[in-house]
Design a binder for these strands. Structure first.
Lengths: 205, 205
DNA sequence: TGTACATCAGTGAACGCGCGTTCACTGATGTAC
DNA sequence: TGTACATCAGTGAACGCGCGTTCACTGATGTAC
């Protein structure tokens, strides 16, 4: 664990407190839950006074946004990697699986990312995704997955894909499905089986 | 709005404070958001002192559980009604749609229901659903939707269905999909189109 | 190379706030006789 | 039918707490000359 550094190891000036605060927040979020992620607790975790964060963030909300933004960046990277690994096949399942896997391994972080995106009423990197970003690539891949038709058909595929991965990510933890997971040989096969069943990226019937 | 009753209309003894508190909590949740739903605010909303709720609930958590439980009961009723309306067809879509519609119209309530179910690590009324409850009926219907095969196939259909409705319910509010909604003629057709695309209740390919 | 000084990034004490919960209390209700 | 009393369901004041944020401050750093 990235311990709160003892006073003699850390100089008066931190060096990169901003990054340290975001990291401390992410860690608190994951280990103690969202209600434990107060500004004071984050500062404490980073080994710094409660007022220090205000030199890097306007208020608590801005820190939260930074945490979420970093989360989206990491998720984007993992989706991109999955896409490159499976570059030869047009099947979108690996990318979708990468999304679900991210959300399953960092559920609390994923929650604040999603909530932030909801209050912003759009998913970052999805709508205004720069050309070549993983989200833009996913859109292209979905458009190509079958012989694409109308814009509406592609949009339907996107809506279905996103609903599928989000829903699956949040439902996969329920005890309810443990029997099925065991039968299929673990969580990953389970996730893949459910995803493939929904065929969210497929355009036509 | 069910106003905080003026002191002369309400007698010293409330009559049904327990129900009033649950209702006040639900209303605060929906209008002001989850962070506004403090025990004190709920008591205030119900026109009662901060200590009064403790005659009906052990602590805040117990009130929250009661709110969630009532939510599940209402959702169960609406799913049941949808099922009866479409009793003749084996298509599970209407019931799934009822679930999504509930969650879409009471998003904050749905959130605490879901979070409560997650921390309990099961969905109430789903696992230990009494014979004849809507959730048990849905399970039966899913089992019958196609020519059912193995238990695993049915469980997969359930996992897919639940992931689909949960994911869709939470994603449907994103601005991202407004164009598609408009094209399809509103939110309901949109929801139905996405659900049908995923075929979450279908067993075989 | 040394010094004055502006700027930056911390400190720590304090603020007011709303929270969950407890406490001794009191008004209203219902039951026994 | 009336009265004593137990019980129930409220009150309102108080508790301690952690929170977000502000403030005057100070130590460290870098730049101009």
């Amino acid at each position: 664990m990235p311990e709160p550094p003892s006073s003699e190891t850390r100089p008066y000036h931190h060096g990169d407190l901003r990054r340290a605060l975001v990291e401390a927040a992410r860690q608190l979020l994951e280990t103690e839950g969202p209600s434990a992620m107060s500004l004071r607790a984050v500062a404490r975790q980073a080994g710094v006074s409660p007022a220090a964060p205000y030199h890097h963030f306007k208020d608590k909300g801005e820190l939260l946004e930074a945490v979420a933004a970093e989360g989206w960046a990491v998720l984007g990277g993992e989706m991109m990697a999955a896409m490159e690994d499976a570059a030869s096949v047009p099947d979108p399942t690996p990318v979708l699986l990468a999304y679900v896997h991210f959300a399953r391994t960092r559920p609390a972080l994923y929650r604040i990312m999603f909530d932030g995106a909801r209050s912003a009423e759009s998913l970052p990197f999805l709508t205004d995704a720069p050309e070549g970003s993983p989200f833009a690539l996913l859109r292209e891949r979905l458009a190509l997955a079958d012989d694409c038709r109308t814009v509406a058909e592609i949009e339907l595929a996107i809506a279905a894909s996103w609903s599928a991965v989000h829903g699956l990510a949040e439902m996969a933890g329920f005890k309810q499905f443990e029997h099925l997971k065991a039968e299929l040989g673990g969580e990953l096969p389970f996730l893949e089986a459910v995803l493939r069943r929904m065929k969210p990226g497929q355009i036509a019937d």
